[in-house]
Design a binder for these strands. Structure first.
Lengths: 245, 245
DNA sequence: GCGCAGATTATTAATAATCAATAATTATTC
DNA sequence: GAATAATTATTGATTATTAATAATCTGCGC
């Protein structure tokens, strides 16, 4: 019964891309990993064509960097770039909140996310994994409720990126609690149609998440830099990385 | 001498994609046109692979829609979607203006675009083609001066889309003159570092362009709908479109 | 003429085998 | 031991072929 009962939608390269994206986002393939066509094609039991397509797709999504004749590596983003990423995200998430708050049909979304947001209050500080999952789900609900196709798609693409780092911010219990409160406040602002307030809350939360995530990253970056202060060059620094599959 | 003297960067599919994008943006391939792999591959003298890649690329850029087993057609965007597109663009263009105005190194950009913007004043109402070219160039300069990589790339992608329609707005001499004035005002605001004013000017101009372009589109849409009010169905309405090459 | 089942056609999706181009690595020579 | 040359790994691109699918056409009975 657990066989490929229902295929339903999605072309081959899309399925491959989705699988690989998952692995990149959840850290299975760390930044710098090489994604080698031959290995992937034997893992998935497919020819090179669909794999190629999938890698190109991930490149457009920004998860992978393709260099001519050198192939695909998981994009490595500097802390500075991550900060910039969240800066754009904050602006767009603010816009999302404002437009939703001003949307006459916002009631549908409000009804759909009220329960999950309440659950976030209870989960904060208790179950990090479940909290993260719920937060991601609520976030997706917000984005998908947008009637504006373009904002929907640019936000989805940015979110795919940030989800690589947001989970770091949620390691802090304090941030979990803060985030839960802000989501509730956002919901309230949306319910009464206060676009101004909604925009403010949403973008402020995004900035806080950015600060929390980058704090974490700078910390681990320092820890990684510290161990070998006496060996400056012999081992080429961070060049060789593991392969896929 | 007009042979392929210098190749310089760019892989094959990129070059094909660039060419096709050009044709879509300038209207050579109108919305709904089919882009058939076989025809394109013989036109470009390439095999299917690179063509496929290029079409996938254009799909990600939103210029082309690919339906499984049916191939690529030039994306047809409804007037409503175009309005939504400009709405997002207005917000991001505003952000761009603000960030540039607040950038300590904005002097470099200001120096680079001062002359072109002055030229726009002179061209407005005189040479539409040259005005459009200059406006596009200035716009690109603004975007490329951004230090934030993500805003740069999302804006580039949105601009590629809007450039299909902005040229419609510039058909109006009044809009050309208005646009030229606003660009000058924007430059002034940036020069003195007034981010608030810069954002306002930029997003207002974008909205005006939107209104002008959609006015034009709604007009032609009505004209197209009008001619045959007596023949409701015999000829299948707008289904068959021309092919590529 | 009308509608419909089925054959035909056009086109893309995917595979496979092959060669060329290139970057990285290793070996060689001075 | 450093510069240079050979080797290797991997991608870029071509070609040919088969499968899958959607659109179109055909003929049949009415």
């Amino acid at each position: 019964m657990p066989s490929p009962a229902i295929d339903l939608t999605q072309t081959l390269p899309e399925k491959v891309a989705a699988t690989l994206a998952q692995r990149i986002v959840d850290g299975t393939y760390p930044p710098g990993s090489r994604l080698i066509e031959a290995l992937l094609s034997s893992e998935f039991g497919l020819s090179h064509g669909p794999i190629r397509d999938a890698l190109r797709s991930l490149q457009h999504a920004g998860l992978v960097t393709i260099l001519p004749y050198r192939g695909a590596v998981v994009t490595d983003v500097t802390v500075r770039e991550i900060r910039e990423l969240y800066q754009v995200r904050a602006a767009l998430v603010g816009l999302r909140a404002r437009w939703i708050a001003e949307d006459p049909q916002r009631g549908e979304l409000v009804a759909r996310v009220r329960e999950p947001i309440a659950r976030m209050q209870r989960l904060a500080g208790k179950d990090r994994a479940e909290y993260t999952r719920t937060a991601l789900l609520v976030n997706r609900s917000f984005t998908e409720s947008l009637s504006n196709h373009w904002l929907r798609s640019t936000l989805s693409s940015l979110m795919l990126q940030t989800s690589r780092y947001t989970r770091l911010a949620l390691a802090s219990v304090a941030h979990q609690k803060y985030s839960a409160r802000q989501w509730q406040a956002l919901l309230d602002a949306i319910e009464v149609g206060d676009g101004e307030a909604a925009e403010k809350i949403a973008s402020t939360l995004s900035q806080a998440t950015r600060d929390e995530a980058t704090k974490f990253l700078e910390q681990t970056a320092l820890e990684q830099a510290a161990p070998s202060p006496a060996k400056p060059s012999p081992v080429k620094p961070g060049k060789k990385k593991k392969m896929a599959a």
